[in-house]
Design a binder for these strands. Structure first.
Lengths: 195, 195
DNA sequence: CCTTAACGCAAGTCATACTTGCGTTTATAG
DNA sequence: CTATAAACGCAAGTATGACTTGCGTTAAGG
């Protein structure tokens, strides 16, 4: 009984959803995330503002949806054969994304959104990222590069966190070789040491 | 000519200013920085909202004033005799501040405020912090602990940035020994190394 | 004790998030 | 193909909070 809840995800609904997400993404390339309004997105998408509210409920929920889509598929973890190589590759990819307006928006909204939807999204997002990073360190430990793979969370947090801080709190651009710089720092340290 | 611009900084004006800054500080202990309203501050300070706008112009300018006051005097750079000791002391102090609501507010507003006043304040604030950090690394270089004090900005940025990221983007508390953890990381690195 | 800077108060403007009622379009089951 | 109702458009409205303005009142400070 009630095999079909009588929803209509196909056709118009799908088109509307795609148009709104697309419009929001495009606008994030032009407008500061803090200044983005639902009206703008609706107009750009050729859709009524009411539709957006009925579909997403709040502005934050919509933007969270947009950003998860934007940042979802990236961050492959290639096996380059060394911890240094793996980290430079991954951090370099993240750095590239953070240099784009969408990347900035992700960092900005991730740090400022307060509602429940965003909270859950934030937790699952970072849980996924840290999980993927962990495998890199596990491999490195098996190769004998590091003594304990348990350092992974802190190290990854330092790598990512420094970049977020750079663009958010300091509003300065990420150097071209930022991935190299950071990976060298956390792998080798800065102490004068006989090596 | 015009020896006295006919301003009246004393008496009532000073009291009002103090009351507002104090009210804002207190409110930052109770309300999320994003939800803070000028009306709240005015009421708490026993002052009319209009007065605040005539005095500070915008909400962001007021909050910037508050936060500069709150974070102004701290961060002494003690000479413990070692780079490790100096860094743990300084980063520990910053961590303590970041654990308070006011510290969170500073990080939050520093990352989100967009107006000109905040921009200038942000630049001067961080310039000052990085300058103070530099002397620690200069001393360490003279002692032969590190080869090149030019690493100071990146290292300090990694230390501070990781903590900001932790509380802002991840919304997780700073460990009690976060300063030790981070300093060990950037000084020694994580690579398995003959030392 | 006078001048007027600083303040209080009432009223209002403006922008934007979010809601509601109702008529129209269109996906989709039968 | 047709009928039902989900999804949409449109107009109007609510709510909130940043910020302004005019005018009368208080009190700083020469």
């Amino acid at each position: 009984m009630n095999t079909s809840p009588k929803q209509r995800p196909g056709g118009r609904t799908a088109r509307t959803r795609a148009a709104v997400l697309d419009a929001a993404s495009t606008l994030l390339l032009e407008v500061a995330p803090g200044d983005l309004t639902v009206g703008q997105i609706a107009t750009r998408a050729g859709v009524n503002e009411t539709t957006i509210y009925r579909k997403w409920g709040t502005k934050e929920a919509l933007l969270a949806d947009v950003l998860m889509t934007l940042s979802g598929e990236q961050l492959v973890a290639p096996d380059t054969g060394s911890l240094r190589g793996d980290l430079v590759a991954v951090i370099g990819t993240v750095a590239e994304f953070l240099r784009t307006p969408a990347g900035y928006a992700l960092a900005y909204l991730g740090a400022t959104s307060e509602d429940e939807t965003s909270r859950v999204l934030r937790d699952t997002f970072w849980a996924d990222r840290f999980e993927r990073a962990q495998v890199i360190f596990d491999r490195a430990a098996q190769r004998g590069e590091i003594p304990d793979p348990a350092v992974a969370p802190l190290v990854y947090e330092a790598l990512i966190g420094t970049m977020h801080f750079r663009i958010l709190a300091r509003r300065r651009p990420l150097d071209d070789d930022i991935a190299q710089q950071l990976v060298n720092l956390v792998l080798d340290g800065v102490l004068q040491a006989p090596r």
